[in-house]
Write a protein that binds this DNA or RNA. Structure first.
Length: 513
RNA sequence: GGGCCUGUAGCUUAGUCAGGCAGAGCGACGGACUCUUAAUCCGUAGGCCAGGGGUUCAAAUCCCUUCAGGCCCGCCA
């Protein structure tokens, strides 16, 4: 493998390594897929973004490649998850594409969780061809393969028992009929198979005995066989999957042997990835409730930064996501990359639609001063930022606002005190004198702006023979009730002349008593 | 029980495939900027490369082993 272009010290991105590692002379299909059985969370996103990164790397390399996302909406509901009402116990076992939507606004249970996820993908600039298992099964696309599976059930059973080292029941067949009576994807006993008519005779646990036509999607293959069957049917050449599947004896191992021996096809190039966990909370899983959905992430994280989170770590590395201060660091780090603009990581993360260069940290402060959209724009404009693309600016500001509300540590939060904070009583006589000079300067100021305000503080320091730092501290104490605060010049500018001078005068007066 | 992945500075990590001076970023600390305390720039400290053994002229890297965390051998990203 030679991917460095001759310079062995050059760092090569893992996605480019994958792209260089696959066969170079055949058309490629990258398959990603998630079961929408619950809120699709940040962890799930790794699968799709990982696929997308390899897709982009392969494309840039000049390979013929397509990206698909397969929603396994034909999977049964396994239990009443914590986020579901108890009444959903009646639907356990039904394919999630046939279960009513929890909120009533979508076509089905599966679509309820799928729709926001697909929207998020679009925001993340991931544009796969979307397939639904239910539609594929019901269209008869898999008929031939299911027939092959049923005819080779014994050999498949042997592979599964040997490779994954477990014992399956004597009568085990890798096919679940959907019972005509109870509608469940049932672990029914298979009584017979008519390969001409594509019929399977079964006896369901509910007692019903009948036939199902698998060419019409009246049944489903078990996961471990379904997966390799799809590789063969769709011609999958690359597939990212979670580390659970990657373990020895796991579904990739069994799938590999099944696809080779039963379907006479090759397993895809595997890209196994680690979990994303939440700082202090453990791994994400929709079933346990430890999950930040992609939606709630995109509420605070710009989409390109979210991509960057995946881009910067090799797939086999676990990611611990810290939505608090860690997120701010991440955003900063990404902003620096963006500024340089020539790194591979930036190329893979960036999204053309994201276009504002206002530092997120700055917005975190602005949204705590300016309460509505107009004043946010106003404040930003005065500070010299480009606000032409006001939609993008406000969207970013909105993210900062939600972040401050939900995730920010107290350190970066501040409140402009409505009443005079008690800290002003600790001011020394020197400090009060300096503040008096400062107010005088403010009154005589040709224009109320950050630069003049800032200079005024330094001038005051000279004239009153006091360290300007002390004056800054006084200002923060008088306005916020704390010793530190956002950069003083434009902070005061944003607060406005009337409020600032009145407050400082009050503080001087109070301290004098 | 059998197997897979991970472990490098306080934190996030590069380097491991293919052995050749252990590198970044954040944070901390120090300084500069007589235009910024949460801006910017410069600098400093911080490492038994999880532990032990082996191979080698040379090991974070290869082999063996121990420990810690996670995962798989029902279903899961």
């Amino acid at each position: 493998m030679q991917v460095t272009g001759g310079n062995s010290n050059e760092k090569v991105h893992w996605a480019d390594v994958c792209a260089a590692d696959v066969p170079q002379d055949v058309p490629h299909l990258i398959a990603t897929g998630i079961t929408p059985s619950g809120p699709i969370h940040l962890g799930n996103m790794r699968e799709v973004v990982t696929g997308d990164l390899v897709y982009k790397a392969m494309k840039e390399r000049g390979l013929e490649v397509e990206l698909i996302y397969n929603a396994d909406d034909f999977d049964p509901l396994r239990k009443v998850y914590p986020f579901l009402p108890e009444s959903y116990s009646q639907y356990i076992g039904l394919p999630i594409c046939d279960i009513p939507c929890p909120c009533g606004k979508h076509k089905s249970y599966a679509e309820h969780f799928l729709e926001p996820f697909l929207k998020a993908l679009e925001e993340l600039d991931v544009k796969p061809t979307v397939l639904r298992s239910s539609e594929l099964y019901r269209s008869g696309k898999f008929t031939e393969e299911i027939k092959t599976v049923l005819e080779n059930a014994a050999e498949i059973k042997e592979i599964l028992e040997r490779v994954s080292n477990r014992k399956l029941p004597e009568t085990w067949v890798p096919f679940y009929p959907i019972c005509k009576k109870c509608k469940k994807i049932s672990n029914a006993e298979i009584l017979g198979h008519d390969s001409e008519k594509h019929l399977v005779k079964y006896r369901c646990d509910c007692g019903y005995e009948g036939e199902c036509d698998y060419s019409k999607g009246e049944g489903k293959l078990v996961w471990r066989v379904d997966w390799p069957m799809r590789w063969a049917n769709l011609n999958v050449t690359v597939e990212p999957f979670g580390k659970d599947h990657a373990a020895a004896g796991g579904s990739f191992d069994t799938g590999k042997e099944i696809v080779e021996k039963i379907f006479r096809a090759d397993a895809p190039y595997p890209v196994a990835y680690e979990w994303i966990s939440l700082k202090g909370k453990g791994a994400m899983a929709s079933s346990t409730g430890v999950a930040i959905t992609i939606d709630s992430m995109l509420e605070i994280v710009p989409p390109d930064v979210l991509r960057y989170l995946i881009v910067r770590s090799k797939p086999e590395k676990a990611i611990t996501f810290d939505p608090g201060m860690g997120l701010l660091t991440l955003i900063d780090e990404y902003a620096k990359l963006a500024e340089k603009g020539d790194s591979r990581e930036y190329e893979l993360s960036k999204i053309s639609s994201v276009a504002t260069d206002i530092p997120f940290k700055h917005l975190v402060t602005v949204v705590q001063i300016a309460k509505d959209d107009d004043s946010i724009i106003e404040v930003l404009k005065r500070s010299g930022y480009n606000v032409e693309n006001s939609d993008a600016v406000l969207k970013r500001a909105q993210r900062a606002k939600i972040w401050v509300d939900k995730y920010a540590p107290d350190m970066v939060r501040f409140t402009v005190q409505k009443e005079l904070p008690s800290e002003v009583y600790t001011f020394t006589e020197e400090e009060r004198y300096a503040l008096e000079i400062l107010v005088a300067k403010m009154e005589g100021m040709p224009e109320w702006n950050a630069e003049n305000l800032h200079n005024a503080v330094y001038k005051t320091g000279e004239e009153a023979d006091i360290n300007p730092k002390a004056i800054f501290t006084c200002i923060y104490k008088a306005i916020l009730g704390q010793e530190r605060g956002p950069r003083a010049g434009w902070f005061l500018e944003a607060l406005g002349h009337d409020f600032v001078t009145k407050r400082i005068v009050e503080a001087v007066g109070a301290g004098a008593q």
